[in-house]
Measured scan of single mutants.
Amino acid sequence: MQFKLIINGKTLKGEITIEAVDAAEAEKFFKQYANDNGIDGEWTYDDATKTFTVTE
């Protein structure tokens, strides 16, 4: 399945899409990606669109 991350950071904005087995695997990848890029904010997930959003 495809999952999307929308980044609304103070210094980094954009979107990335990955293939993952389930939402838990996608969330783990996205949170590591955000951590690696210094993004720390509020997370939301929309199951209907398979979209995670992080907002700083």
Rank of each mutant, 00 (worst) to 15 (best):
Q32M: 15
F52G: 00
F3L: 02
K28Y: 13
K50Y: 12
G38A: 09
M1P: 03
A24C: 03
E19W: 05
K31E: 03
A34N: 08
N35A: 14
I39Y: 15
I16N: 14
A26D: 00
V21D: 11
N35G: 14
E25Q: 15
K50D: 05
Q2W: 14
K50V: 08
Y45L: 03
M1K: 07
I16A: 09
A34G: 15
V21P: 06
A20C: 03
T11N: 07
K13T: 08
E19I: 08
I6N: 09
A23D: 13
D22C: 03
T17L: 07
T49H: 07
D36M: 10
D40S: 06
K13C: 03
K10S: 12
A26L: 00
N35Y: 11
G14K: 07
Y45I: 03
V21Q: 11
N35P: 02
E27L: 09
L5E: 00
G9I: 09
A20V: 10
T44R: 14
K13I: 08
T55S: 12
A23Y: 04
T17G: 09
N37H: 09
T51F: 09
T53I: 04
D46L: 14
E42T: 13
G38R: 14
E56Q: 15
V21S: 12
D46C: 03
I16Q: 04
T49Y: 15
T11M: 07
A24Q: 06
A24E: 05
A34T: 15
N35H: 11
V21F: 08
I7Y: 10
D46N: 12
I18G: 04
D46W: 10
E27S: 06
T44M: 15
E42N: 03
K10Q: 04
A20L: 07
F3S: 01
T53H: 08
E27H: 11
E56M: 07
N8K: 05
Y45G: 01
V54Q: 01
K50W: 12
T51Y: 12
I7Q: 02
V54Y: 02
A20P: 03
A24F: 09
N37G: 09
F30I: 02
N8G: 06
F3G: 00
K31R: 08
F3N: 00
A48Y: 05
T53G: 03
Y33N: 02
A48R: 03
E27A: 10
N8P: 04
G9Q: 09
